[in-house]
């Protein structure tokens, strides 16, 4: 994965296939603490403790087409390389939160990448799910919710290509607004 938005896309796809009804994505840049935190939270069927322990190990998977799970180990590597790490909180029947932390100024931190495209394409592929996106820096925050989009578009499906294209641009503008001042450091 060449940037963090691709990791997000991948972790969000995990959440999309475990019976979730909503997926919340958070990106928080705390410049004073030099910390960038990403999380993906869902209300899917979750994992028991033993499974959580195993998925943090490289190459555990419940998929049948390949022996090894890759998504979470890759996320862990990218965070550990950049002075951070990941944590997974999960409860069977309740849901899962996967969190990854990075040092903002670490030279091995991958750039943030195209978060607008990650959100838009995830919504396109999983139109039945509700997505929330929370962006924040030291002073400001922005919240996006597909529920609010649906209120505006009524009976038009959210995966209409006109709507998806607009959402991609709208979210990208907000990502630039919230991370703008420190964007060049995040998108190194």
């Amino acid at each position: 994965m060449t940037d963090l938005s691709l990791h997000l896309m991948d972790i969000m796809q995990n959440s999309a296939v475990v019976g979730s009804t909503y997926i919340e994505v958070g990106i928080k840049a705390e410049k004073k603490k030099n910390l960038l935190t990403l999380y993906v939270k869902d209300d899917g069927w979750g994992m028991d403790e033993e499974t959580v322990r195993k998925v943090s190990d490289p190459f555990y998977t419940t998929r049948t087409t390949r022996k090894a799970g890759l998504g979470i180990p890759l996320l862990r590597m990218s965070a550990e390389m950049a002075g951070g790490g990941i944590s997974i909180e999960s409860e069977p029947g309740r849901g899962t939160t996967v969190t990854a932390v990075y040092e903002i100024d670490n030279i091995d931190r991958k750039p943030l990448g195209d978060v607008g495209e990650t959100m838009a394409i995830s919504i396109m592929g999983n139109p039945e799910l509700e997505y929330h996106l929370l962006l924040s820096n030291d002073d400001e925050e922005y919240v996006f919710r597909t529920e609010d989009v649906r209120k505006q578009i009524g009976d038009l499906p959210i995966n209409d290509t006109v709507i998806i294209g607009y959402l991609k641009e709208m979210i990208s503008e907000q990502v630039n607004r919230i991370f703008g001042g420190i964007l060049n450091e995040i998108i190194s």
Binding site: L6, M9, D10, M124, T161, V162
Partner: peptide, 27 residues
């Protein structure tokens, strides 16, 4: 859109399909 697909560039590919379908009114 599994991990290998995403790592290899599936997201911008899907985005291009969305844009082209939109541009050419192939809704």
């Amino acid at each position: 859109m599994a991990t290998c697909g995403i790592a290899a560039g599936a997201r911008p590919v899907m985005n291009t399909f969305v844009e082209e379908v939109n541009k050419r009114h192939l809704g």
